[in-house]
């Protein structure tokens, strides 16, 4: 099974729009949404069955038992994350607590303990034909590489026989991106023709290079700034990055998405452009990639 990861330096470039079109075009039987901070892919891919849900545990959080607490203030004084406050009783702010365990260790009366905390939920839609793995982090539990790893693991648990898996990656360059990158065969970066888009593209290319993963680039909404589009193309040439094509800004695309359709479900300019990008990408992934 070949894994194609679709990434962008920042959110809002159209990564999910393009990923959903690719899933539709390839009839991919395995796909995943690794953008666990703000997953969107499920909004546009039709799922017939209810998902299998699994709680995802992050770092444990401290809890203070008010019946045992003698208000010695040691936990509050020693917390580096300002997560303990006093308002009649001593309390832990679960959003600030990093689960380091210092408060538990300094408490003279064992009133503080670390408790497992649910940080998100994994959802796996699977039937005989296809499998879709996604997850949603809870508020205040951002940026988890471990959850991304779990999402990817879930696709493998469902024994679907397929040649291609498409993964919608996380934006940014942090640890969830690194977790998304691990083990994939190729990365397609969706770039935007803006000054900040170019700086984001450079950063993501650097990250992918660390893994030695083959990287290709396409430009979305290219006609919103043709000058910058040309800059990105020449950047790709200089860096030896495969260029997969340009996709125009298209108000029909917004309409399709709002109807829960992918842009290749309707006859529109962006859909046609994505088809060309898709064909080129598949050729690179399967024919020129070798084993």
């Amino acid at each position: 099974m070949k894994q194609l990861l679709i990434l962008s330096g920042k959110g809002g470039t159209g990564k999910t729009t393009i990923a959903s079109a690719f899933i539709n075009l390839s009839k991919a039987k395995a796909y995943a949404d690794c953008d666990v901070d703000a997953p969107n892919l499920h909004l546009i891919t039709e799922q017939s069955s209810e998902p299998r849900k699994t709680d995802y545990y992050g770092l444990p959080k401290a809890e203070i038992n008010p019946e045992l607490c003698i208000e010695c203030d040691r936990c509050r004084q020693n917390c580096r994350f300002d997560s303990i406050s006093v308002d009649k009783i001593y309390k832990v702010d679960p959003f600030a607590c990093e689960g380091c365990g210092v408060c538990e260790a300094v408490c003279p009366v064992d009133a503080v303990s670390l408790k497992p905390a649910v940080a998100g939920e994994l959802m796996l839609y699977a039937n005989e034909r296809e499998v879709f793995s996604t997850a949603q982090l809870k508020m205040g539990s951002g940026n988890s590489g471990k959850l991304v790893t779990e999402v990817k693991k879930e696709i493998k648990t469902a024994m679907v026989d397929t040649e291609l898996a498409i993964i919608d990656g996380s934006p940014g360059i942090g640890c969830p991106v690194i977790a998304s990158l691990s083990g994939v065969d190729m990365v397609l970066v969706v770039a935007e023709p803006s000054i900040s888009g170019i700086s984001d593209l450079e950063r993501i290319i650097k990250t992918a290079a660390i893994f030695g993963t083959r990287t290709a680039v396409c430009i979305n909404k290219f006609d919103t700034n043709v000058g910058n589009t040309e800059k990105i193309e020449s950047f790709c040439k200089k860096q030896g990055l495969a260029f997969m094509g340009r996709i125009p800004f298209d108000s029909d695309a917004v309409k399709a998405i709002n109807n829960g359709q992918t842009i290749v479900d309707i006859d529109c300019a962006s859909g046609a452009a994505v088809k060309a990008v898709y064909n080129k990408t598949m050729k690179l992934l399967f024919e020129e990639g070798g084993g």
Binding site: N143, G174, I178
Partner: peptide, 10 residues
């Protein structure tokens, strides 16, 4: 490979 860190994964 570079580590996954998992720092803010709380």
């Amino acid at each position: 490979h570079a580590g996954f860190h998992g720092h803010r994964g709380n």
